[in-house]
Simulated assay, not measured.
Amino acid sequence: MDRSLIGDLAHTDHPIASPLDDDTVDALLRRALAGQRSVLDLGCGDGTWLLRALRLNRGLHPELHAVGVDLSGAGFERTRTAADAEGLGDRLELHVADAAMWSTDERFDVVLSIGAAHAFGGLVPAVEAAASHLQPGGRLLVGECFWEQPPNDAALGALGASADDYANLASTVEAVRSAGWEPLHAHVSSLQEWDAYEWSWTGSLTRWALEHPDDPSSAEVLTVAAEHRAAWLGGYRGTLGFVTLLLGDGGP
């Protein structure tokens, strides 16, 4: 099975593809979008962040325009269908494209890039790419991993990572400040949020495989779930953190 489809299946019960609970997502969107008219999500997954944004702003800012870009496009039709059913489809655009290469003349009040820094070559390049689509005075909402504690060999092996792939939290924040952006707010995902996300990720795949034993991809999907669960529980649990930062332009 195509890995983008496996990823879409893994997020069946947790469509926010990051270790964030529903209340946190809503709170972050309310802060970021207060009084704003347009939002872009680079590396948007299935577009769930944007659909949530439109729902939250249905009454307060019914003119909100939401645009998403993702290379896979997995789940786009599902999200478009949901948006249409809720009367939001005319305010949602989803584009299948490389978020790092996509261009438009439109500039946005808010740009999101949550858990997609790898597509840009790291956090600072992701911030710079997001900023290139931003209106003057706009806001960025970015989410990225960091080391909660120095990673041991088990964590690095489980992630297929090196110790310099991420920094600690303080250094992560200083990196975006050095790039000219100041934190207006942040949320550090709790271990409970990580656990809920990982159990959902592996559980959704396991359930699908058990419910489709005759599907040619069933064994592969079950293996992916088991390998991911082992890497998390036996490797990076409690070591890999995640921070979501709301940023304002710090000027020169």
Score class of each variant (00 low, 15 high):
R207Q: 05
L94C: 04
T202I: 04
P252R: 15
E220N: 11
R237Q: 11
S190V: 09
A225C: 02
S4Q: 12
L56M: 07
L50T: 04
T223D: 13
E193M: 10
L92P: 06
P150F: 13
G43H: 13
E128R: 15
G138D: 08
L54D: 09
L20H: 07
W199F: 08
L50G: 05
L56W: 11
F108H: 04
T172F: 04
R3I: 10
G89R: 06
H61E: 04
R37E: 08
A170P: 01
G235S: 10
F76S: 03
H185Y: 15
A226T: 14
L88H: 10
L71K: 09
T202A: 15
A179F: 11
W49S: 02
G75R: 13
A119E: 04
G68H: 07
A34W: 02
A209S: 15
E144G: 00
D90G: 00
S218V: 00
V176S: 03
A154E: 07
L245W: 04
L141T: 05
L92H: 08
N152E: 11
A83Q: 06
G35S: 12
H61G: 03
S171V: 13
G115K: 10
G73N: 11
E63W: 03
D8E: 15
N152T: 03
A161F: 04
A186D: 12
L20G: 11
I114Y: 00
S200I: 06
G43Q: 09
L33C: 00
A226C: 08
F146N: 00
A27K: 15
L159K: 10
L240H: 05
